[in-house]
Design a binder for these strands. Structure first.
Lengths: 186, 186
DNA sequence: CGAGGAATTGATTTCCATCAATGACGGTGG
DNA sequence: CCACCGTCATTGATGGAAATCAATTCCTCG
C-alpha cells in the first residue's frame, strides 16, 4: 500500500503494519494494525509519513475525507473520539520509544508481546493465554530493532525458561508474571 | 512537574523535556519542549502519561481545559489546529522510534541534533549554524538511549572530524552534509 | 581554597550483529 | 511420488559496538 490517498482508513479484518523505509535499506516497523484500528495518520493529511503493508488477508473500510469533515461539522463528538484515538496512538508511540531506548533484547520482545496481548484482549471477549499472532521473526526483528537471528535466540530462551512460546502464528504465554517483570513499563 | 492538572499548557520561554521513569531507575526522554510547543497530551486528559521537567528557567502559559472546550464549541478551527499539532507530534515520535530502532550511536546523536536544529530554525528568523542548546550529555544520553560516557566519546569524534561541536550549551555545526548523511531519515 | 558535579579518557566486559552452515517445511513440476 | 526450491528457523563461531568500571581533569560555586 502506498502513501497517498483522499481516504480515511479503518482496519476491519486481518493484520497489517505501519513502517518507515530507512536509507540503509532496513525498515522500522512503527506499529501493528489490528481489526478496529483507525489509520490515524490518514485523518488529516493526504500524504502519510509512513508506509503500510498487510500481514494477512485484510479488509479495510474507507471513507472520503471530505465526507468525514462534513460529518464532523454536524456532530462534534466524532472529532473528540478522533482526538482520543490520536492520544492513544501517541501514548503507544511514547512507550515504544522507551522500550527501544532503555530495554535489552529480551525486554523489548517481552514488551512487544505484552502490548500485542493487551490489544488483542481488548478486542476479544475470550480470554485464553493463547493468541493468534501472525508474525514472522523478521517482523519482530524490524519492530524491536534486532536481527532475526537474535530474535530466534531470545524466543528459544523464552521457550526453555517456560515463559512464552511463539511459533506457527500462535503466541502462548506460560508465565505472565515473568513476561511482565521483563517488559512492563512501571 | 507532576502528572495531573486541569490545565492545558503552552511553553512560552525556556526549555524542558517530557520523559518516562523506567522501572529500573533509568529514564527515557521522549522529547524536548521548546518555546511555542503545546503540551499536546494535556489537551484531552487530566492525567499525562509522562512527566515533565524544566531544563532552564521557563515560562508557561496555562488555560483551563474547560475554557478551551468552550472555545472549541464556538470556533471549530481551533480543534483542527490542535489536531495538526497532534499529528506533528506523532510524526516526530515515529521518527524517534526509527532512529532508536535502526541507528548506531553516532547516527542517533546526529539525528537528535538535526531534529533540534530544525525546530530551533523554525522558531527563529536568524539562521546561524550556532544554536543555543542547553543540554547536558546526560540528557542526550537519556534521549537517545546511550550512556553519558559513550555520548562523550561520540561528541569527541564529532569534534575531531569537524562535524559538529556541542559544548557550553552551544551547538555549532561545521559539516551539515555529514551530519545529514549520518542522521537523516531518507 | 576546597567541594562537587560534569566531562574526558583508559581498560575490560557484555550483548548483540554478523557470517556461515544446517535443518524443517510447503509448494511445484517432472 | 519424489527431487528441487525458496522461505523460515535454528545453531555455532567470531567480531565489534557500546556498557561498565575506574581514574583523572575541569569547572563552577560556596
Amino acid at each position: 500500500m502506498n502513501q497517498t490517498s483522499p481516504d480515511v482508513y479503518v482496519f476491519c479484518a486481518g493484520w497489517g503494519f505501519r513502517f518507515l523505509q530507512m536509507p540503509n535499506g532496513r525498515r522500522q516497523i512503527l506499529g501493528f494494525l489490528l481489526p478496529g484500528d483507525v489509520l490515524a495518520g490518514s485523518l488529516l493529511h493526504e500524504r502519510l509519513h509512513f508506509s503500510v503493508k498487510a500481514l494477512t488477508a485484510i479488509q479495510v473500510s474507507t471513507m472520503k475525507r471530505a465526507e468525514l469533515h462534513a460529518r464532523v461539522a454536524k456532530n462534534l463528538r466524532i472529532l473528540w473520539t478522533a482526538a482520543e484515538c490520536c492520544a492513544g496512538e501517541a501514548k503507544a508511540a511514547d512507550e515504544t520509544i522507551a522500550a527501544l531506548g532503555q530495554f535489552s533484547a529480551e525486554e523489548r520482545i517481552a514488551h512487544l508481546f505484552l502490548q500485542l496481548m493487551k490489544r488483542i484482549a481488548d478486542r476479544n471477549v475470550i480470554r485464553d493465554e493463547r493468541y493468534r499472532v501472525p508474525l514472522r521473526q523478521q517482523h519482530i526483528a524490524d519492530a524491536v530493532g534486532l536481527t532475526p537471528v537474535h530474535v530466534s535466540r531470545v524466543l528459544s530462551t523464552f521457550r526453555e525458561r517456560r515463559v512464552a512460546d511463539l511459533s506457527n502464528g500462535v503466541l502462548e504465554v506460560f508465565d505472565l508474571r515473568e513476561l511482565q517483570r521483563l517488559g512492563a513499563l512501571n
